[in-house]
Each structure stands twice: as C-alpha cells, then as structure tokens.
C-alpha cells in the first residue's frame, strides 16, 4: 500500500502521518461514511439518483475490500441486517416456489396421494 498524502503539516511541527493501514483508513471513511444524499428512500425512475449504483457499488467494493482483508462491515448492523433481510427474502422466495411446486403436484396427484396415505395406514 502506498503512503497516504492526506496529512497536513501541523502548525506546531507535530505531524501525525498515517499508520501502515492508511488505505484502509481512507476506505473506511470514504466508502461508507459521510452523508448519503443520494436518497436511501426512493428511486425516481425518471430522473434516477443512482442510488442503486451506490448500493451495488458498495457491495462490489466490499468484495474487493474483503479480498484485501478489510472486513469491518461484517458487524455493521445496517449492512448485516440488510444482508440478513436479503437472505431471508431469498429464502422466502425459494420456499414459496417449492411450496407452489408441491401444491400443484399435490393437486395433480391428489388421488394417488390419498391412496398412498391409506396404503401406508394399513
């Protein structure tokens, strides 16, 4: 990692340079800090504020960062809850699909199913 050029000369001659993880410090700040004025709330399709870009970008960057060993967001409640919500939604969708498939196959085979059940009871 290269050295960071963000430091200022302190008026008193005391200068605090970046430590070894300076790129990490920078990414930690510029990636997910600061005010989101892109609007997390609505996405206007006509004059889109590219919120989705920001979100997806963040996810993309997260992959990169992860490869670099940066993993601070994993305990970020906002992000992890979003991830959890996404995975729940995915799972929900998968279960629904399976349920639909089961129900339709059940309707089709209901006669067989009844026979099998009574057969098993015997």
């Amino acid at each position: 990692m290269t050295d960071l050029d963000h430091r200022y000369a302190d008026p008193d001659g005391l200068a605090y340079g970046p430590a070894a993880g300076s790129l990490a410090d920078l990414l930690e700040r510029v990636l997910d800090k600061g005010v989101v004025i892109a609007g997390d709330i609505k996405i206007d399709l006509l004059d889109i504020e590219l919120l989705t870009i920001r979100l997806r970008l963040f996810i993309a960057s997260v992959d990169t960062a992860k490869k670099a060993g940066i993993d601070w967001w994993e305990t970020d409640p906002a992000l992890s809850s979003r991830a959890a919500r996404d995975s729940l939604a995915d799972e929900n969708a998968r279960l629904r699909a399976r349920l639909d498939a089961l129900e339709s196959s059940l309707e089709g085979d209901s006669a067989d199913a009844v026979e099998e059940t009574s057969g098993a009871a015997r």
Partner: peptide, 11 residues
C-alpha cells in the same frame, strides 16, 4: 459535509 464515494447523479 463529505458525501460517500461514488455519489452520482444524472445531472
């Protein structure tokens, strides 16, 4: 007030 990296607008 800094904005997060890649705050992009159509215009």
């Amino acid at each position: 007030v800094p904005l997060p990296m890649a705050t992009l607008y159509r215009g």
